[in-house]
Design a binder for these strands. Structure first.
Lengths: 213, 213
DNA sequence: ATATATACATACATGAATGTTTGTATCTTT
DNA sequence: AAAGATACAAACATTCATGTATGTATATAT
């Protein structure tokens, strides 16, 4: 009853990762034992240790999946600058939050990384990796604002890094809020108006181009 | 060598809490054993179990300390509305971030609650309590904006809850960013400009009062 | 002054998770 | 088709944290 096909083995690997997300979400990363993950995936710890070095290695693989899917959404939508860059960002932000709101798996995965884990000890090294990943995403935003400024669509009085960081912080802050108080916070009544207000107030940034030029 | 004064006992209790912060910060909440905390505090687990029911009970006490000190800063500074409410908020936000930047203990405590713990299992019930605490702080912001609107210092086109949530999300997002990438993110070069930009763009919100009235 | 409650330290019993090792069936390679 | 590599399962040894129970010195109440 051992030695499956390469494809079958790959399936086991994926099912272990899926089981890990689900277990991590229910019990938190550090309180989840490898045995729980294994049983959830319908295998034994032997299979887990065959595919992964340890729990951190699993966590790493999960992060890889998440980050890649995030970049895949971000890159094409910020690769070009439309006539109204702020409206473009506004739509992107709305879509991203709605995606999280509707896609239960993504919600759980994000929840695991942001609320159900414990970045200390071995995990602390992991923050370095996350920093690198986040830097890539951040750079996409910076490039976007820089291009928009170069094309005269946004005023140049603020450094693109500053604008990007501000947007990014608001986005992640809202995401944290949504995940942390899921259930108590309503999308249409709380999340959407906040996004709308943020981007409408950012419009001053755009408006000032007229007073300047 | 037992049975200390009530005051001495209180000191032991405090030293256990201090040790807990330090241990939680270094090793994360769930990976910290009560023995580590005890030894760090210079006592045995006996003392810990005397003062606290379990690790969650310690965590609860720590949260009480943090939340109280936060409210103590917030309440007086948002209790009254000055001539320029946005500038008032701007200063408060700057001061809060600088306090975290300079006060190592507060930085560590916040870091524990936001990054070094694992809100699942038993801890999940704890999110409910945090929700209540955060609601109080949030209410202070809402009241502030409502009063400012009533006094005609800010336009009434946006619900005070929406404005408050937006500010709050940006603040917490920036805090997360700062704590998560501490060292890689510089206060003067990254944090301060982002705060400044956020409040300068919020000014449209205030400006529009002229076009409206 | 005595009794009792307090503030711990020490010792014990239990359980559970980890990493490793060994066994083995079957896929793959040649 | 034989040999080796692969993909696990099962068993083992070790470590370690937790909760509780017990012991005890001393502060405090009466």
């Amino acid at each position: 009853m051992a030695r499956k096909t390469k494809e079958e083995a790959q399936e086991t690997r994926e099912s272990i990762l899926d089981a890990a997300i689900s277990s991590f979400y229910d019990n938190g990363v550090s309180l989840t034992s490898l045995d729980q993950i294994a049983r959830q995936a319908g295998v034994t710890r032997g299979a887990v240790y065959w595919h992964f070095k340890n729990k951190l290695d699993i966590f790493d693989a999960l992060h890889e999946r998440l980050h890649q899917s995030f970049i895949d959404i971000l890159a094409p939508r910020l690769g070009h600058v439309e006539d109204d860059p702020l409206a473009q960002l506004h739509r992107l932000h709305t879509d991203l939050m709605q995606e999280v709101h509707q896609n239960e798996i993504k919600k759980r995965t994000l929840s695991v990384f942001l609320l159900r884990c414990d970045y200390s000890g071995d995990m602390q090294d992991f923050l370095k990796k996350q920093e690198q990943s986040k830097l890539k995403a951040f750079q996409i935003f910076v490039d976007f604002f820089r291009k928009a400024q170069d094309q005269g669509l946004l005023p140049a009085q603020h450094a693109p890094e500053t604008v990007a960081r501000t947007c990014h912080c608001f986005m992640s802050g809202l995401l944290y809020e949504y995940l942390r108080f899921t259930g108590a916070i309503d999308f249409a009544a709380h999340v959407q108006p906040s996004i709308d207000f943020f981007y409408s107030s950012l419009t001053v940034f755009k408006q000032s181009i007229k007073g300047e030029n």
